[in-house]
Write a protein that binds this DNA or RNA. Structure first.
Lengths: 154, 154
DNA sequence: ACAATAAAAGACCAATTGATATTTTATAGT
DNA sequence: ACTATAAAATATCAATTGGTCTTTTATTGT
């Protein structure tokens, strides 16, 4: 559903939301390493996002990417708008024409509420909210340096 | 989420389920025209599906693609297994590693039940069930020859 | 036997997405 | 001013997906 590019972008933004500030910037190289994403690829994505104002950046020594408190007030949809080149919420899941609440395809009643819930979350929760949630849930943006316990692999 | 190929394949199979029989076969050309899908593309997909036993076919004059009652007992997942080259139900929606019920990403609780419901429907309902549902709902597999009323376009 | 029909097979081409490498520009520190 | 650093810009390349075309094989009807 989401392209690799979008997933990478989201992870990178959430990483910055959690770790960066005006006084603590991250270069593409660090981010690529930390999240185990191909360097040149994430560099390009970060540039796009910076240009669009989703994140911030400064050139030169001590420069890098970071997020301001304002940046963190953006939502996930603002990331997708930049990276994804079509609206993932549009179109019938099965590709039927004129699929709608009135003319539902066989999975319409499963897909429509899902899209709705997802869109709402991507629209109404800020990036800051997401970052906090991840921290609270004990989720990982990367497995870099995470010790995997034997029992977890079974 | 689904590739074009899968969507085309599903529509074509449902069309055959609704219209074909051993005594009423359809050539790729008719199907392509009826569903407004590129001929060569759908031809290839139909061949794959026939090879896999999802649909039936015979060569030569009076030949074509069709579905037997047994074919119609297959489910949608059997189509996806042939056409889609990766399991669409696997992997974290946001691309986070080790996302699970215990380590949920911020949209896990939205995505997991959706995937579940979808998988169940694709697994437990037959193609015949789907075809019937579409007929009953008044949905369209194609807009070929469907008159669109003015009010519908507003 | 042979002509016509239609699927099967496979080679091929185009567009999109994923990924890389190179050059240019801005800035900080000396 | 000069050097080092790091983003910005851009050109390029590879892989996947989407789509087309040509040849071969099977079958039917005469």
């Amino acid at each position: 559903m989401l392209s690799n590019a979008s997933k990478y972008a989201i992870r990178a933004v959430l990483f910055l939301a959690e770790n960066s500030s005006y006084h603590k910037k991250y270069g593409s190289k660090q981010i690529a390493e930390e999240l185990e994403i191909p360097l040149s690829f994430i560099a390009k994505l970060l540039q796009q996002l910076a240009k669009a104002g989703v994140i911030s950046s400064t050139k030169g020594p001590k420069g890098g990417f970071f997020m301001t408190p304002q940046n963190m007030q953006n939502n996930i949809n603002s990331i997708l708008k930049e990276i994804e080149n079509e609206n993932i919420f549009e179109g019938c899941f099965l590709g039927l024409p004129r699929c709608s609440d009135e003319n539902p395809c066989p999975v319409h009643h499963i897909v429509a509420p899902f899209k709705d819930a997802l869109w709402n979350k991507f629209q109404n929760q800020t990036i800051l909210d997401f970052a906090r949630e991840i921290k609270q849930n004990g989720s990982f943006l990367s497995l870099k340096g995470v010790e995997i316990k034997r029992k977890d692999l079974l």
